[in-house]
Write a protein that binds this DNA or RNA. Structure first.
Lengths: 326, 326
DNA sequence: ATAAAAATGTCAAACGATTGACATATCGGT
DNA sequence: ACCGATATGTCAATCGTTTGACATTTTTAT
């Protein structure tokens, strides 16, 4: 059996209360007793039972992290960073891949509640999950509107869309398309498209918006892209994520379009993976380090003080990563 | 305050015991009472407190999943799959990025113990963590020796190394190098190198082993690769992971080496990401679906019956994914 | 009508740790 | 020798749920 607080007490030759006091550094304690107790704890490999502790009203120090799928490198990097920051602050992450399935997301919420998590960081793509409002739990959202009192952290999508389009334009493109996912009302991600449209309009150019269904497999998406690129002779394409940009570059090669002479491409996200292994790609980098730091710090503020007032929206600046594709 | 079992009982007009019985489907229950109770639970959005439940000796249904870093697409995909399978079986994942830091890995183990996880799936790269043996906890390892009674699941690294090298050879390469990470004693990953060496030896060819320190940044690794490729005129390179293969292809381009005529390249892993976005790369695919299914199924067997006898090693066959780089 | 089966209730002891109230003991300083 | 500070102990309630023992009532079948 696993050692319990009482076993430690017996071995150290002190009372259970004293052991608890040592663990929680509560009340008067001589360094000798502390040492005795610590020694006993080490000897037994004792670990206080977190379940029992949190029954007293102590925090569980568990945080639910809901994203659509960490096998997407963008979410992989983001979640990895969030986990690292939380671990350093002695919090643990319960990982939830919602797979863009609203029902799954609801189930996850239930589960997180049942596990008494102290808070949630949510960045999946399903909207209209009313459940988020019901639980009076600290929640911070990434790049997505959940409900009025849930703060949103996002990169400056509008600015990013503008910047990307400007880059394409200044690289010589005049017939510029955007490849984006289905737009959801209220999703900050729409900002990328708005920035794109705003820039083009300001330049008296016509926007060409292509919505690629999010759930397409990459192979199907590539076919779709090929069709589009064959039908239209774009000389600049802004992809609202880097993976799509890779597909576009792929298709460009298939169609023998030279990049960036005949076709200019700009992506979005700028993960470490892309920067390291596709430095040729010009892209708009989301400040993942800042985003994850901010997500965590806001969440912890809410956890420590449920009534602390937070902004409803935090927008972090993006940066252009210059490759050779635009 | 969060609703408790008693609140549900009051609202449903039954005793607390009955509510508990309904939840646990224990003893005689009429469908009317069940319905009443369920209705009350719904109305209050009641979620039984998992902390309190597991104090009774009930399982926490928490699984610790330790990998070096999910921002690596290989681990990202693997963990994502593991999480999905576990969620379907009503288990939750506590995510641990050990960052290849032994101390962090020890801390994680402690933390997982404190949180009463039912089991652990470990696939980090640190060896010699004695702690794994101390806890009498169900553990399954991926591709890594932990201790005698901890089963290892891995792809057939030896076969994969052989296959990769054979592919390079049959594509016309005779001066074949391997780029691999530092070899750790007891790590099944060494099998890739052994398969490589065995094949070459069988063909009376000389192995050329280059160990690239695992912790190098991609940029530094690329420089290192460039140096090596300039000094030696290899016509075939087997990379023990796909990301390194991408770097090699990159360097090949910088050095104006045509692929696959002057240089043939084979990678290892074959994640969805690589297959989807780098179909040009010839690589050895690890059966991630089977690996994750097996990892979970073995772990659950151990959890259900601590004494069930498992093999000490499960080796799953690999598959060559034919691209155009070899 | 009667016995067995089914349905529900009451009560209380766990689970493992925390914490406050209170008692007691040891120590140093004066 | 006495005060206060320091150190430790005992005891019991608490957190939310489960579960067994036992009692009581209702339903069903014969």
């Amino acid at each position: 059996m696993k050692p319990k607080l009482n076993d430690v007490a017996k071995l150290a030759g002190v009372s259970a209360t004293t052991v608890s006091r040592v663990i929680n550094n509560h009340g008067y304690l001589s360094s000798q007793t502390k040492e005795k107790v610590f020694a006993a704890m080490r000897e037994l490999h004792y670990q206080p039972n977190n379940m029992a502790r949190s029954l007293q009203g102590k925090n569980t120090r568990l945080i639910g992290v809901i994203f659509s799928d960490i096998s997407n490198p963008f979410f992989g990097e983001l979640v990895s960073r969030i986990e690292k920051i939380l671990f350093a602050k002695n919090y643990k992450v319960i990982l939830c891949n919602s797979a863009d399935d609203p029902q799954k997301e609801r189930d996850y919420l239930q589960m997180l509640m049942a596990n008494q998590v102290d808070g949630i960081i949510a960045g999946a793509h399903n909207l209209g999950i009313e459940e988020y409002q019901q639980y009076g739990l600290p929640i911070i959202s990434f790049d997505r509107y959940l409900s009025d009192n849930i703060p949103i952290v996002s990169s400056d999508n509008y600015q990013g869309g503008w910047l990307a389009t400007q880059t394409l334009h200044q690289a010589g493109a005049t017939n510029v398309a955007i490849f984006t996912g289905k737009s959801h009302a209220g999703s900050p991600t729409n900002g990328r498209r708005e920035g794109y449209e705003a820039y083009l309009t300001a330049q008296q150019l016509t926007p060409h918006v292509h919505e690629l269904p999010f759930e397409l497999t990459p192979a199907l998406k590539m076919m779709e892209i090929k069709t589009i690129m064959t039908q239209h002779q774009y000389d600049g394409i802004f992809c609202s994520d880097d993976l799509t940009a890779l597909l576009v570059l792929n298709v460009a090669q298939q169609l023998s379009l030279t990049v960036p002479d005949q076709l200019r491409v700009v992506g979005y996200d700028g993960t470490a993976l892309i920067r390291d292994y596709h430095s040729e790609l010009t892209t708009v980098e989301q400040p993942l380090a800042d985003i994850s730091t901010l997500l965590v710090s806001l969440l912890l503020q809410r956890i420590e003080d449920a009534n602390c007032t937070l902004e409803s929206k935090y927008t972090l600046p993006v940066k252009l990563i210059k490759g050779i594709t635009a």
